[in-house]
Write a protein that binds this DNA or RNA. Structure first.
Lengths: 158, 158
DNA sequence: TATAAGTCATTACCTTGCGTAACTATTCCC
DNA sequence: GGGAATAGTTACGCAAGGTAATGACTTATA
């Protein structure tokens, strides 16, 4: 790995994996706060709820448990989110075909409309910031996003 | 930009900047939840409080306002965090030399000890996950971390 | 140079997102 | 068929953060 000369001195400790862990956790925490703050005013759904709609839209029906795992929340939290989405008519609950304990969550047409509206305005704030980046930095993030996702979903626990 | 063949189909929409924005925001949200959950049991400080100590350690004294901006929280929140750190003797408040409104926060020896202890165990969970990654993925994250940080701090607002 | 306007930090109060513990309903396994 | 495991839910609590209002000080203006 080589580093360009214009890299800030203070970022050098990122060279070690441990240093990277420290920087990454804080960067993720900070960016998340910013994202919550800059979310589009037309959209009163929480980011978690939007994430659920996106998953149902993109990957099809999911059980409550699967959604909880993906979003890294506990089952009761996902129950609440799904209930809230259901009350707005954005998702429906269905019985699982061959396991009576599970609940299958399905996005409705109204839910898809919300996803498409969101796609249209597409995280206005973040999209604009990303557009301003040089394309090589955008490429780095493009490749980083799925890695972050896999880290979040890692089976390993402390 | 080229994509390897083993890339999941669903990640292809990340090709567009808008798609990247969507993926990135959710990945960041999810990884942050995971990081909060997997934080080291010996460390009862919040991740925000730890971030503040790291900044004071690495970049020297900071005003309350500067810390709030860096951590992407509102001033009252940072006041609370600093107060909590102060009660544990990890930071001290000092008068600003030439602006009586501002408060300079300085890390104490005890605070530095906490940072060093944290550095020693270094986000155990995340470090371990990062060690498991192939080194090219780790390199991507190494380069992504400062970009995420800059995004969080961007002057632009929606 | 007096005062108005702006800024930094704080206090008080409130919302929200999420967790744990306990319970119900179902399924799996011997 | 009965005990153990699993999926989801209900009830309750807490922590992290926000907004609005206030006080202390500084800067700009008239």
């Amino acid at each position: 790995m080589t580093y360009s000369n214009d890299m800030p001195i203070l970022d050098k400790h990122v060279r070690s994996t441990a240093g990277l862990a420290t920087e990454l956790r804080f960067s993720v925490m900070r960016l998340r706060r910013r994202l919550v703050r800059e979310r589009h005013p037309d959209n009163d759904l929480s980011l978690t709820a939007m994430a659920v709609l996106w998953v149902l839209h993109g990957r099809g029906d999911q059980t409550v448990g699967a959604l909880a795992t993906r979003e890294q929340v506990r089952p009761p939290t996902m129950t609440r989110t799904v209930t809230a989405l259901g009350e707005r008519g954005l998702v429906e609950r269905h019985d699982h075909p061959d396991d009576g304990r599970q609940v299958v969550v399905r996005i409705t047409d109204a839910g898809r409309a919300v996803v498409l509206a969101d796609a249209a305005r597409r995280d206005r704030w973040l999209s604009m910031r990303l557009e301003e980046l040089p394309s090589d930095e955008r490429d780095i993030l493009r490749r980083a996003a799925p890695i972050l996702q896999r880290l979040a979903e890692s089976e390993q626990t402390l």
